[in-house]
């Protein structure tokens, strides 16, 4: 089957399945967080999985999207348009900053992106006339319920948010898969394996890196906008270092080489803390344990490892 169509069907099926089995608004709320995380982690997959670049500053782009929908409506821009402005701003910033810092690689790049994230966090914390400072700010009311009501579907706000985030995540996943299988995507993967080999084949390595960086920034910003609108309140913590690490962790846990890894990673790391509230004191031990086990037993992440396993079993079945 065409991989793009396959991605569309799988993601849509997951969105629908969730809606069918969730018994209450609370599950829909956790579900929408999973899809929001899927969007930002898909961006990480494009950057880390396709091109092999580590960013520890993506929470900064996430926060640009979040604060765009928080700040701009105060100046007369509708929330929906603000989302696009935020995404464009994040993409643009990534392109401008990407030029110099993507010349770095490995740890140096990670530190440079970390610095970028910190700078954005500092601006959000200090400029309280605009951002409300460390206490954060209220995001103007926005409810996708009304959109669904326009086409005659009545549902609760949390359900509407679930569907909206699920559909946006589906679009994001499909676009990422499509990119991965396009000539551009193959160029990106070539850069992943070797800068030199890729450039000898005619790939503009610097440009490929900048474009991937910008694309992943746009993903993060869209996820940030959705989260801010869904929560109705935003604080500079969204731009914090831990949030950047969380995104990379989700990608690595699920498997950074495939967008399905993004879905599985955000599913596990979003749902697990909710399951573990009864042992809240040990939450970090369990999460750490899951990470260590994945790193040791399945170094490429859950989805690729399980894919390999299924493949091996299939081969064994055939050889008998």
């Amino acid at each position: 089957m065409n991989p793009t169509l396959k991605a569309l069907l799988i993601t849509l099926a997951l969105v629908v399945a969730g809606a069918l089995i969730f018994p209450s608004s609370y599950y829909f709320r956790v579900g929408s967080l999973i899809w929001i995380n899927t969007i930002s982690v898909t961006g990480i997959v494009v950057l880390l999985g396709y091109v092999g670049l580590v960013s520890l500053g993506h929470a900064g782009f996430f926060a640009i999207g979040a604060y765009a929908v928080a700040v701009l409506p105060g100046y007369g821009v509708p929330s929906g348009a603000a989302l696009f402005v935020g995404a464009a701003a994040a993409g643009l910033l990534a392109m401008v900053i990407g030029r110099p810092i993507l010349r770095l690689s490995g740890y140096y790049l990670a530190i440079a992106t970390l610095g970028l994230g910190m700078l954005i966090w500092m601006v959000l914390t200090k400029e309280s006339w605009l951002t409300g400072g460390p206490d954060g700010m209220v995001v103007a009311g926005f409810n996708p319920r009304h959109w669904f009501a326009l086409v005659g579907i009545k549902m609760k706000s949390t359900e509407a948010w679930y569907w909206l985030t699920g559909l946006v995540a589906t679009i994001g996943v499909v676009l990422a898969v499509n990119l991965g299988n396009s000539p551009w995507g193959r160029a990106l993967r070539a850069v992943h394996d070797s800068d030199v080999a890729a450039s000898s084949l005619g790939v503009d390595v610097a440009r490929a890196k900048v474009v991937a960086f910008a694309i992943s920034a746009v993903y993060a910003a869209v996820a940030g906008s959705l989260l801010a609108l869904a929560n109705g309140y935003i604080t500079p913590d969204t731009a914090g270092f831990m949030h950047s690490v969380e995104m990379v962790t989700m990608a690595v846990l699920g498997g950074a080489t495939t967008v399905y890894g993004a879905i599985v990673g955000s599913l596990i790391l979003t749902a697990l803390p909710q399951v573990l509230t009864f042992v809240a004191e040990y939450e970090h031990i369990v999460l750490g344990g899951v990470m260590v086990a994945t790193m040791v037993a399945m170094r490429r992440g859950l989805v690729p490892a399980l894919g390999d396993l299924a493949h091996r079993l299939a081969m064994r079945g055939r050889s008998k």
């Binding site: 209450s24 609370y26 709320r29 956790v30 967080l33 929560n231 935003i234 913590d237 969204t238």
Partner: peptide, 21 residues
């Protein structure tokens, strides 16, 4: 009692949980 770690995002999820579940 839930631990939201002062994260507004977690807090909102727990608020939904306290109300619904």
């Amino acid at each position: 009692l839930y631990d939201d770690g002062a994260d507004p995002n977690k807090a909102r999820t727990f608020a939904t949980r306290l109300i619904e579940e």
